[in-house]
């Protein structure tokens, strides 16, 4: 009979003598070090990602104007990626300047900005 290689227990026949159930017992300190590093790394990554996100947002808002960004994503209408892409395209073509461009009211009485 070949005895299998094991990572922990190989029998449950004497439960009173069993303590830990998990594999690789004795390496708990290493598990904790890895976990703590991942936790701290998560915070660092989040701060970096957030900074990048806001830099990109401000770059866009600077080009289209904050008030226009509000029309697309703020108080009046919420933005979609398509809305933003329309603004980007308009900016690239030189058609849209900063500030809102009002159109006729929608059927529900609301106003949509150009490109929405």
């Amino acid at each position: 009979m070949i005895t299998a290689v094991g990572t922990g227990l190989d029998s449950f026949t004497d439960p009173e003598s069993i303590t830990v159930l998990y594999p690789f017992a004795g390496w708990e300190g290493l598990f904790v070090v890895v976990g703590v590093l991942l936790w701290i790394g998560w915070h660092v990554r989040q701060v970096r990602a957030e900074n990048k996100e806001y830099d990109e947002a401000l770059e866009l808002y600077e080009r289209v104007g904050v008030e226009r960004a509000m029309h697309f994503g703020g108080s009046t209408h919420l933005v979609t990626e398509e809305d933003i892409e329309v603004v980007r395209a308009e900016m690239a073509e030189g058609n849209a300047g900063p500030g809102p461009v009002e159109t006729a009211p929608d059927s529900d009485g609301s106003h949509r900005t150009a490109g929405a």
Partner: peptide
Amino acid sequence: AVELAGLDT
């Protein structure tokens, strides 16, 4: 500006 536009925007 992000606050005005909305944090989801």
